[in-house]
Amino acid sequence: MIEPLWEVFVRSRRGLSHTHVGSLHAPDATMALRNARDVYTRRQEGVSIWVVRAADITASSPDEKDEFFDPAGDKVYRHPTFYQVPEGVEHL
């Protein structure tokens, strides 16, 4: 019997997003949450925890990362530094 693997995300304080902190094994979501509290927040590192079954995550492939992220590569005009600002113009 192998317990499923869960990925753990913790919101360290209000105003911040949940961040991936690691993973653990647990038979179900309730136990995964309790285990995550004991393993990853023993020193008040969090105010909220998400657990997600690792098997339910779809990830982009590292082998195809060049092609996958290519479309953004030649669109420098998406950055404000692309544009020339005449001298003396402020608050732009």
């Binding site: 192998i2 693997l5 690691g22 993973s23 653990l24 094994h25 004991d38 393993v39 023993r42």
Partner: peptide, 26 residues
């Protein structure tokens, strides 16, 4: 007790890190 519990936690962080390399903790 808190220290010994930490050691268990450290073991679990590390097993989780090892599992990312394609092995199973069991």
């Amino acid at each position: 007790m808190a220290k010994v519990q930490d050691e268990a936690g450290h073991g679990l962080y590390l097993y989780a890190a090892a599992e990312t390399l394609g092995v199973d903790r069991a």
